[in-house]
């Protein structure tokens, strides 16, 4: 479609965003096929603990003699999956709440926005910790907890977009034709309101990865799965004697989050209609 082609032309001119996209692609490929190419189980004790990188094992071993490279590759899958699923859930729920609040306004808007504010005022990481601690720390709970703390900002943004669009003439025209609210919300306003939401949604992935890392660091990760945060958590007691053990997964988180942010910014510039006119 020409729309998409034009979008790509604009996105391409943004070098940091393209670099971010390239890095992100590498991380995604790593997560997708890494564990297949390097099938070592990250929980297996393969050798002596505390082996430095570039020895028998490319990135060395951790405190329990587990292969760090295996951890990074398998962990990429978990970290990214949690990040993407949680922010997808948060975006879908947030958009739904924001759309209904913004389109209908009135008491419904008040009710939904007070609920949103309630979640916004609680420090999100603390809330996530509490939620995971109350329920069992497995991957489903973690995804739900992160989504729960992430949706309010999406809802706020989507509401603003819907308020801006609901009085536009094309929406009034559709109402004058007798189009149903559901159709107006989903097929008329949504395509126009989505670009900024997509940007925030993409940035939420980065936050979600960080939150998951934080949870794992505190020992609230899924004990049966290796994630980058979990690896840092394991390494934190030996930070002074074996710094690389925490630095390697830390670096991965840094690179991935940075790449996602760059892509998000690039999306923002390319999708933002005001900048587009320049």
């Amino acid at each position: 479609m020409t729309d998409l082609a034009a979008f790509w032309v604009r996105f391409r001119t943004n070098r940091p965003a393209v670099a971010g996209l390239a890095v992100l692609a590498v991380v995604l490929v790593m997560a997708a096929i890494g564990p297949t190419l390097y099938p070592t189980d990250p929980f297996d004790m393969v050798g002596r603990p505390f082996l430095p990188p570039f020895g028998a094992y490319p990135l060395g071993t951790d405190v329990a003699g587990r292969d760090i490279l295996a951890g990074i590759l398998h962990g990429a899958r978990i970290s990214l999956m949690i990040g993407i699923m949680a922010s997808f859930g948060a975006t879908v729920f947030g958009v739904a709440v924001g759309a209904v609040a913004g389109y209908y306004g009135g008491w419904l808007d008040n009710l939904l926005m007070r609920l949103t504010d309630f979640f916004l005022t609680i420090p999100s990481f603390v809330l996530a910790v509490v939620l995971v601690a109350i329920f069992s720390p497995d991957i489903v709970t973690i995804v739900l907890a992160i989504a729960t703390v992430s949706w309010p900002s999406v809802a706020r943004l989507a509401r603003g977009e819907f308020i801006a669009h609901r009085q536009r003439e094309y929406v009034l025209g559709c109402r004058a034709l007798g189009m149903r609210d559901r159709e107006i919300i989903l097929f008329q306003i949504m395509p126009n309101a989505l670009p900024p939401v997509v940007v925030v949604g993409s940035l939420t992935v980065a936050t979600a990865i960080l939150t998951e890392s934080g949870l794992s660091f505190l020992g609230l990760g899924d004990p049966n799965l290796v994630s980058w945060g979990y690896m840092i958590g394991v390494a934190r007691t030996v930070l002074r004697s074996a710094w690389w053990m925490a630095a390697i997964p830390g670096l991965m988180i840094l690179i991935t989050v940075l790449a996602i942010n760059l892509v998000g910014e690039g999306l923002n510039d390319a999708l933002n209609p005001r900048l587009r006119q320049r």
């Binding site: 003439e169 094309y170 025209g173 004058a176």
Partner: peptide, 17 residues
């Protein structure tokens, strides 16, 4: 609704882009 229709001022805002 079909009995009465409307044409707006700003043709840039009245058609969904």
């Amino acid at each position: 609704r079909r009995h009465v229709q409307i044409v707006f001022q700003d043709p840039y805002a009245s058609l969904n882009p």
